[in-house]
Design a protein around this nucleic acid. Structure first.
Lengths: 230, 230
DNA sequence: ATAACATTTGTACATATGTACAAATAATAA
DNA sequence: TTATTATTTGTACATATGTACAAATGTTAT
């Protein structure tokens, strides 16, 4: 074949298919076919299916985190507290939708991929994510915490976690928003999604703290985790 | 074999395995082995693997929605607006963690199952969910909307969607909360998760509306969905 | 006990899967 | 050119998969 760069074609096809169907449901043959390549070619370039996923992550993680860091630094310089908080949240959300250097939809595709991998409990993904995104996550958590010093850090962690969940779920099931809003909202419109997530997250961050317990040490005699519930 | 009820054992094993690894990564043989049954038994009782998943959904959907409806009705009768809003959100969240009639952890397991199925884009699940949960979702959206009449319904839909995303993600990746909070929070503690989700969601629901456009009809000459972003 | 039915077992089949590898072909360097 | 290397192709293998089905076994009713 005279494909200018088959490696790239395979990578793109894999990313597309994984981001739609997950890792487990996509076969190496599916990927090869979508890329117009031979199954053997996949083995040649990436050795294993895991290797292919790894390469996809390595392709995207750095740029996305870089973009986030830039936007975060800019956001931290915003004077007004309310505006700053919003800018910080936006700095976290926007790169998840548009990863800049990438082709159209690249950011959305990779974020949706991450969402599905995390649901599938994919081990390759889990490792990469923990060691690549945690730094950035901490940076955002700290920045938000500095804008909201009266909220315990732990609660900021929870709320950031909810933000990521909202983001993931919106990318995975956008049609549900359209359906439940009876067509008044378009769940697949990144602009709309970003605005809604940002506004709703900023508000949630500002919620009063629960502080049932002292900020550091929980009192020893607490009921076991799932006593009254499970 | 003299297993008192093999059908139930298979169902339980499937639910457990699906809720951890997803549908695609679990084989009929895995399920059979976990249930101490023969692969053929699975075919006998449920005909196909899809049939097995279907049965799991039918087993849980009704009770969970019933519980939600009860709690919702009670919540709607709360006098104070703020308290009512919180009660409504809680009525939505709590049954996702504890499905009542079920054995310990049943609610969490089924909700985690739904989270993974929705990420995997499972068709069987998608169909059942849309026709079983949408009524309940609308009831909650309406109830919240009545407590917050100044917020457009569409925005309540978005924020409810984020709530579900947060809930799902917390059940799928609880260890991330523990890790990012450096052990100060336990992401797997249902009680803690519920309180955090409820408080943060109540706040997000009360966020001011975006209202870039008139409440009902968006102006015709709007930019195409993903023009400036994708 | 005998008949009727329900369940379980064991096995088989067709297909799908990840990956290995030798041969063929293209690209590059000498 | 020829030699060398990089890539692609085709095929093969071992294993896994969903499901079908007949035989064996258990259960219940008469």
């Amino acid at each position: 074949m005279r494909k200018p760069n088959m490696r790239e074609a395979i990578l793109a096809a894999a990313e597309e298919l994984f981001s739609i169907n997950g890792f487990n449901a996509v076969s190496v043959r599916d990927i090869a076919q979508a890329a117009g390549a031979n199954p053997g070619s996949v083995t040649y370039h990436f050795k294993t299916k895991d290797g292919l996923l790894l390469e996809i992550y390595q392709r995207h993680c750095m740029p996305m985190n870089l973009r986030r860091s830039e936007l975060l630094e800019a956001a931290k310089r915003v004077r007004d507290v309310q505006d700053r908080l919003e800018a910080i949240v936006r700095a976290y959300v926007v790169p998840a939708f548009s990863s800049g250097s990438d082709l159209a939809g690249g950011g959305v595709r990779f974020t949706r991929l991450r969402a599905i991998m995390s649901a599938e409990g994919n081990e390759v993904a889990r490792r990469i994510i923990a060691q690549t995104f945690d730094d950035t996550s901490h940076a955002f958590i700290d920045a938000i915490h500095e804008s909201l010093p009266h909220i315990p850090r732990t609660e900021i962690v929870w709320r950031s976690h909810f933000l990521l969940g909202a983001l993931y779920y919106t990318l995975v099931t956008p049609e549900r928003v359209s359906r439940l809003s009876r067509g008044e909202a378009d769940g697949a419109d990144p602009g709309e999604a970003i605005e809604q997530i940002v506004k709703s997250t900023v508000a949630s961050m500002q919620a009063p703290a629960l502080d049932k317990r002292s900020p550091r040490k929980p009192p020893a005699g607490r009921a076991p985790a799932d006593a009254g519930l499970a």
